[in-house]
Amino acid sequence: MEMFFQLLVNGIAFGSIYAMVAVGLTIVFGILEVVNFAQGEFYMLAAYVTFLVYLTQLPYPLAIVIAVATMIVIGLIVERFAIRPLIGRAWQLPILSTLGISIIMQNGAIVIWTPNPRTIIIDIANLNIHIFGVVIVFQKLMIVFFALALFIGLHYFIQKTKTGKAMRAVSQNKEACRIIGIDVPRISSITFALGAGLSGFGGALVAPVMAIHPVMGILLVLKCFAAVIMGGFGNIKGTICSAFILAIVESFAVAYVSLQYKDVFAFLVMIIILLFRPAGIFGKKVGI
């Protein structure tokens, strides 16, 4: 029974990370109709930035802020130069462009920082907390806590703020938005930067508990794609639920089925679900 809860808690902690990255993917798809392969690279770069800032002896919370801010800036640059010129052209072009960006960032990271994994050691992050016989690393609790806070904040942002409402409008009908004077390119930039920021936040949060290496983002982003597809492209709540489902399934499958095929379970779950529900479990929603 303890084992069961241990696996569940691990699944939830990883699910939080998957969900953060996947939500970024899904809103970018909902609003720009772009599948962003570079989303995982923001996660990876943010972990490196956290690492670099931490090396300068600055406190970890500040490192998180700097990492997220850097990712937002990079996100804005990528959107401006590699996505915006392609909006309204053939649907494959933006995907290929983000794929190219992903390759540049990933291999660029290898060139700059070598493929060797780096680690940050923060004492408090690695503190073991015992709750009813289940051992939880402090940082994992923080991850879950911040993820939940973030999703509530995001919900508020999209539902209540002017920008959030404009985002919802753009995801439903771009043409109508142009007519009533919503600045669609500006909303697209904000969305892309938001996605990059979410991913970056995930990367900064895992930096103290995971090895930091250049290919940490690509495998993660593929699993997050699985969550996005299962949740129905552009459906935020569906994506979050799917991300948690995938992470929990993965956590149990690794323990009870096979460690070797660790990275395959998420895809198998996705494919099985798509066989029965081609539009995902939660169906396609109009708008975000």
Partner: peptide, 24 residues
């Protein structure tokens, strides 16, 4: 048979997942 019934974007990702599964 299943993948070509999906949307264009899903197709791209499902075929990528297929590559990774075969590789594993």
């Amino acid at each position: 048979f299943p993948a070509l019934r999906l949307s264009y974007h899903s197709f791209a990702i499902v075929t990528l997942a297929f590559t990774l599964i075969m590789r594993a």
